[in-house]
Design a protein around this nucleic acid. Structure first.
Length: 493
DNA sequence: GTTAGGG
DNA sequence: CCCTAAC
């Protein structure tokens, strides 16, 4: 086995491990959408119900003491030992085979957990619809259709809807029904309810024509960098501090570079305008030095933190710093120790596979640092592929609705980082270099490649201006991106 | 309210 | 991840 093969095996194993974690960790409320979407497919109605039933039983093993009394279906489900409840059982009990991708995507991760289909596979069939297979909606559409029919189903539906509405009314109706079902589950925006205009337009022109890039009048022209002047806060700080605290600053910043991570203002509800906020007394550099639990004087922090709460925070944070492994963070904190200010833990307890850190000083609470899972990255990529760069709230609402901790800004930040990573990969081509630059979390090369593709399709403002024009990406030359997609990605049927 | 970009 | 100007 050469090195490349080892790499690929390594990646696939890693992905599998992460995804199984994800699967076991994130069923929850998504189950609702599973059953709902399944039931769209009439042929699978029985299976859906059965599977749903089974999974509920699996969720409460041993809760039924009269096992002899239950029917065969229940017995089958209950026979499964808790540790056996996993991918295999879900799949084998469901039997909705043609679209396992879809099942897993929607059932457990809304679009990318196990069933991610990389872009490479998208081109296996004769359909070249850009985001084929990797996006939950489309998978859902094709759940019971196999082969090329499956691949072209979405498209053919749309096209038949435009040319002659009566040519395949059944398909359109079917699609319409499905889209409605999605809307009812908040998976699709309301305007998807009309399979006629919007969707056909979407299909005919490809996703980019209705993408945010054009909505904002960016067609052809890449967004220019926004001019940026020094922030008020910066001006205030610098003017005041340069006079009063230059000496202290040197001492404080010697220990921590720049703004110390974790030192942050509490965004209180009584927040005032920056100028008022930064009264000289507030800019005590006691805050900059990371001495978390010392009373800070009349600052905002003190307003929001009672001494007892500080104490609680301290213990919780200690626990967190000790237990860095996945899934331990939540479990190691006894409920008694965690109260109001720690509620962020319970609210974010849905993803056990993530490593969490918390830096905290002066009572300021920084959001949990949640590492991005591969499945999350895939969802983000799919979202960008469908809606374009910049539609972060759209992507958030549609694909990350179950991830309360991922804000649109987070998505944007992550996309920026992905671009960096993908460019790093492009620059050095060698995967070892990639690992050297990101030894902590090597992303699968396929993902980075996909990011790179999308980066050329949906240039990110500024970065794409400079990098893509300079780079040797052959696809992104003189043709504006929407036009390029139109010609290269949308198949002519 | 959202997004871009600097930190 | 946070912050803030720009939109």
């Amino acid at each position: 086995m050469n090195q490349a093969e080892e790499e690929s095996v390594y990646h696939s194993l890693e992905e599998e491990a992460i995804d199984v974690d994800c699967l076991l960790g994130e069923p929850r409320s998504d189950q609702v959408s599973v059953s709902g979407v399944w039931c769209y497919e009439e042929d699978n109605l029985g299976k859906c119900i059965k599977t749903e039933y089974d999974s509920y039983n699996l969720g409460v093993p041993g809760s039924n003491e009269n096992m002899e009394g239950v029917d065969t279906t229940n017995l089958n489900a209950l026979d499964v030992l808790p540790h056996e409840v996993g991918v295999g059982n879900y799949l084998t009990t469901s039997n909705v085979s043609p679209c396992d991708d879809y099942l897993l995507d929607f059932g457990f991760d809304h679009g990318g957990c196990i069933g991610y289909v990389s872009n490479e596979r998208l081109h296996v069939g004769n359909s070249q619809f850009p985001m084929k297979g990797s996006f939950g909606i489309e998978n859902s559409l094709t759940e019971n259709i196999s082969g090329t029919e499956c691949q072209n189903y979405f498209l053919s539906n749309c096209i038949s809807g435009t040319s002659t509405n009566s040519s395949e009314p059944k398909s359109v109706d079917r699609f319409d029904d499905f889209s409605k079902s999605l809307i009812n589950q908040d998976i699709l925006p309301p305007h998807f309810s009309h399979s006629g205009l919007e969707l056909t337009q979407f299909c005919k022109n490809g996703p980019t024509s209705t993408s945010p890039a054009q909505d904002h009048g960016e067609s052809g022209a890449i967004t220019h960098k926004r001019s940026r002047k020094p922030t008020k806060r910066y001006i205030d700080e610098s003017s005041i501090l340069s006079l009063k605290n230059s000496k202290k600053r040197r001492e404080a910043s010697s220990g921590c570079k720049g703004r110390p991570s974790g030192v942050r203002r509490v965004k209180s509800q009584h927040e005032v305008k920056p100028k008022d906020k930064m009264a000289p007394s507030d800019i005590s550099f006691d805050k900059a030095i990371q001495v978390p639990f010392v009373s800070q004087g009349p600052t905002e922090c003190q307003k929001s933190n009672s001494p007892t709460k500080l104490k609680v925070s301290k213990s919780a944070v200690c626990n967190l710093f000790v237990s860095q492994g996945p899934t331990e963070c939540q479990k190691s904190n006894s409920p008694a120790k965690i109260e109001n200010r720690i509620d962020i833990y319970s609210s974010g307890s849905e993803d056990d596979s993530e490593t969490m850190m918390r830096s905290m000083t002066s009572g300021n609470q920084r959001k949990l640092h949640r590492l991005w899972t591969v499945s999350e990255v895939k969802k983000l990529i799919d979202g960008v592929a469908h809606f374009g760069v910049g539609k972060w709230t759209h992507i958030k609402k549609l694909l990350f609705s179950s991830s309360v901790h991922r804000t649109p800004v987070d998505l944007k930040d992550k996309w920026r980082n992905l671009l960096k990573a993908s460019h790093a990969l492009k620059g050095s081509r060698i995967e070892d270099d990639q690992k050297r630059s990101q030894p902590w979390r090597p992303l699968p090369k396929s993902i980075l490649c996909r990011v790179r593709e999308l980066a050329s399709v949906y240039p990110y403002p500024r970065e794409s201006n400079s990098k893509i024009s300079k780079s040797k990406v052959p696809l992104a030359h003189h043709v504006s991106s929407p036009a390029r997609i139109k010609t290269s990605k949308v198949p002519v049927v």
